[in-house]
Each structure stands twice: as C-alpha cells, then as structure tokens.
Amino acid sequence: MTGTDALPAYNFAYLDEQTKRMIRRAILKAIAIPGYQVPFASREMPMPYGWGTGGVQVTASVLGPDDVLKVIDQGADDTTNAVSIRAFFAKVADVATTTKTTEATIIQTRHRIPETPLEAGQILVYQVPIPEPLRFLEPRETETRVMHGLEEYGLMHVKLYEDIAQHGHIATTYAYPVKVEDRYVMDPSPVPKFDNPKMHCSPALQLFGAGREKRIYALPPFTDVVSLDFEDHPFAIQRFEAHCALCDARNVYLDEVVTDDRGGRMFVCSDTDHCETRRTEGHRGTGLPQTEGGETASTSREAAE
C-alpha cells in the first residue's frame, strides 16, 4: 500500500451490499419466525463487540436515505455510546438524526424501550449482548439449539422457581425472558422488566441484533409477547414511589442519581426525550428550583449533546 490512493473507501451505511443482502434475508426469516434466533455471518464492525455491533449491522442493512434515526443508550440520547453510534450513521449514511421518539423512523436502542408508545411504521432495533435466554442455564449452543427445537423450556421455569424458593421473588430484574406467540422463549435484551409489556402487541416492528453471538431475531407488529411467570407469582413490573425530579412524570422508569455522600438521592427519567418533552409542555418536578436556575439545568443537558 502506498500513498492515499489505497486508503479505505466505504459503502453507504458502511456495510458492503453482499453483507446487507445476507443480513436482510436473515431479518425476513426472523420476521417469519417470531422469537427464533436466525444465525447470520456477523461482520467485524468499526466499533468493538459489546458496543452494539449487532444493532449497528441491522440498522445499516435496513437504513435508507429517507430515514430519520434516533439512537439511545440507557434511554438517553446523550450517553456517549448513543452519541457515537448516531455520529457513525450521520457520517457513513448521511442520514437525518433526531432525539424525538415521535419523529424517528428507526430507533436503535441499548437497554430501554422509549416511554412514548411506538407507532406503526416505526422500527425499533435492539442491541443484544447474549441473545440466548437459556445460555446461563446451559452454556453450549449445541444443547440450547436442541432445547429450542423441542420447545424444552422446563429448565427456565425451574430457575425462576428456585428464585422464588430462595428469595420469595423471581430475582430476574432485567433481560427477563418472554415467550413469543406461545412458541419460542426469547431474550428481550437487557431492558428492565419494566419495559417487557411494551413489547407485547407493539404496532412497531422490533428487530434484535447480536453481533458477537451472530444472531438476529424479530417481533413483527402485534405479536404476543408474554413474560414467563407462575400463577402464584404473576409477572409484575418495577414500580417507583418517586416522581421524576425534573418533569414530575410517574409510571416511567427512573434513574437514581446520588447527590451527596450522606444518602441524598433523587430520581429522574431514564428516557431523556420523554423528560424534555414533558418539561417543554410545562411539567416541573421538585428537583428543579423554581427560579431561572432550573432553566440552566435543563439547558445544560441539551448543550452537552
């Protein structure tokens, strides 16, 4: 290699067309078999495994020039990895980006589902670290594949029941397994179980990409997604006593913010767009001083973007 003539040049949305076709075919089969993990020949991406390479490959294969992309990590648009992935697509695909859930045609996410209900036509792309819900019960792919084939999910129920025996609760709080269309047990990615009900019969198309583990799976719109539970221990989501200190929202997922070393803490929306939208609408939480100082706080969040 000499000079700049051989310096790399990349295709629209980074991936080459053959790779996109392979991923697109996997996505179509994933949609045809909801909850089943389709193996695909995942590529090395220019960000590390674990940073969302599966989600990025799915988004890159789906994305077109007219799309509007939103990227969130922990529910927030301004976390570093969300910023980085959004910047990646803005650069390699010159695609429009947004932080508004309602404006996005594609939302790539790590660990959350937006609070604002998704609509028909929207696509939610999840970044998945370990797509196999049975992996921590049986580390071997050769075994878990057979278990899915035979619909042999007893082990999962045993594990959940052992939790109840030991703790009085099912001790799984995130990546809480679901059953799809009464057939496949599926890992919802590490979203808090608070978000599980949002997957059920969502009007949006949900796509899941696991790059390192080389799996793609999907939930078409209006698909039955049921969190595993027991009659005497029904599934229940987290409930927060607190309201968001910034926008006063209730019944949303909250981040706990430690404010000092004497036990002081406050709770704020994990979904930054939801929180900002509510504040724009005039909702104010108790954590905002009722002076202009409050405006400074909210402005600085936006400025950090």
């Binding site: 067309e17 076709r21 179509l28 949609i31 045809a32 789906v62 078409p220």
Partner: peptide, 13 residues
C-alpha cells in the same frame, strides 16, 4: 435494493 428490501420487510411484517 434498499428500497425494495424495505418494501418486502414491510410486507412480511
């Protein structure tokens, strides 16, 4: 091909 794929994906979904 992206346009056609998205249309087919829409149809399958």
């Amino acid at each position: 091909s992206q346009t056609v794929f998205r249309a087919v994906m829409d149809a399958m979904a």
